[in-house]
């Protein structure tokens, strides 16, 4: 306990190394503008990944989050455009859109969770299915094109992504709150302890009077809620949603969770690690864009190497522990 735990420190060391590397390669890297950009664009995946940490820790998985975000963005835009004539160009209309996104997220999460816990279908299969469903629905709603928010509403809504307190924009603030709350819940609440117990061994949890299905369902709903929240912040960025919104977000979120030290098979959740994982992924992209280190064709390879390395480091530690 007293000796520093490489398991948790590994990703943090990698993050610091990336920051140093970035600063050496390009002085613009540490400019407040760039830092704001990186943090703000990490916010969507970040909030989703915090929710994903709970789902994975409880032994589940959700592949549908990227499509779900696209779908929620789509229905939020449609709702706001529809409410516009009646309600006018004001915050009330935007609140309607936000409400639709957040409630929609809860419902979508409930749908995933209920199919998994009540119908007892493998999470991989259920969310693979809903992934396709949400993606198709948004493409269909957009008629194969793009759903765009009314221009006037966009102008009003825009500061939710771009505005904030000084350099710190709202997405960053929201992400920070979600991260702190997530960490607290995982570490200090009964829910968090139950989530870890279920992922560790759901039979033991059941024999300890824990309502396993209810807790599992709640993890999916929490994730849905956070996807909704991410959507609320995503829509003002481009004011549009299409079939290509949120593609592969699910894999980025899962990768961030795993880099952060949460076991894919469940049982141990590290919300802080997940936040570090998200930042690592965003930084790699940012540094590669800023620095011309390698051919852009190889960006994906660099990301892949770092993901595998992060997990290998943790594995080494685990093997050492078992001896």
């Amino acid at each position: 306990m007293s000796k520093p735990d490489l398991h948790t420190l590994g990703p943090l060391v990698a993050l610091v190394a990336l920051i140093v590397l970035g600063a050496l390669l390009n002085p613009a890297f540490l400019a407040p503008g760039n830092i704001t950009n990186v943090l703000a664009r990490s916010a969507f995946i970040g909030m989703i990944a915090v929710g994903m940490t709970f789902v994975i820790t409880a032994g589940g998985l959700d592949l549908s989050v990227g499509s779900m975000a696209a779908f929620l963005a789509g229905i939020a835009i449609i709702a706001m455009n529809a409410a516009l004539p009646g309600m006018g160009e004001n915050w009330g209309t935007i609140l309607v859109g936000m409400g639709v996104a957040v409630l929609g997220g809860l419902v979508a999460g409930y749908l995933n969770g209920a199919l998994i816990t009540k119908a007892r279908i493998e999470p991989f299969i259920v969310t693979l299915g809903t992934m396709g469903i949400f993606r198709s629905l948004v493409t269909w709603l957009a008629d194969g094109g793009t759903l765009s928010l009314d221009y006037g509403l966009r102008t009003l809504y825009r500061p939710v992504y771009y505005g904030g307190i000084g350099w710190i924009t709202w997405p960053i603030i929201t992400f920070a709150i979600v991260a702190f709350a997530g960490e607290w819940i995982m570490r200090h609440s009964r829910f968090g302890r139950h989530v870890e117990a279920i992922g560790s061994n759901d039979r033991v949890a059941r024999y300890s009077a824990i309502d396993v299905n209810r807790i599992r369902l709640m993890t999916y709903m929490l994730l849905g809620l956070l996807v909704g929240l991410a959507t609320v912040l995503y829509v003002p960025r481009l004011g549009s949603a299409s079939g290509s919104t949120g593609v592969l977000w699910e894999l980025e979120a899962i990768a961030a969770v795993i880099i952060g030290g949460t076991a894919l098979k469940g049982g141990t959740g590290r919300v802080w690690g997940t936040v570090v994982g998200v930042l690592i992924l965003s930084l790699i992209d940012n540094i590669l864009n800023l620095a011309d280190l390698v051919s852009p064709y190889l960006n994906g390879a660099i990301q892949g190497v770092i993901i595998v390395l992060a997990v290998v480091l943790q594995r080494e530690k685990r093997i050492a522990e078992e001896r």
Partner: peptide, 19 residues
Amino acid sequence: HGNWNRDDAFTVMQDFLSK
């Protein structure tokens, strides 16, 4: 590469602007 995608193009352009 912005991959003919709005979000990717947004990110790449932000980094160009920083750089």
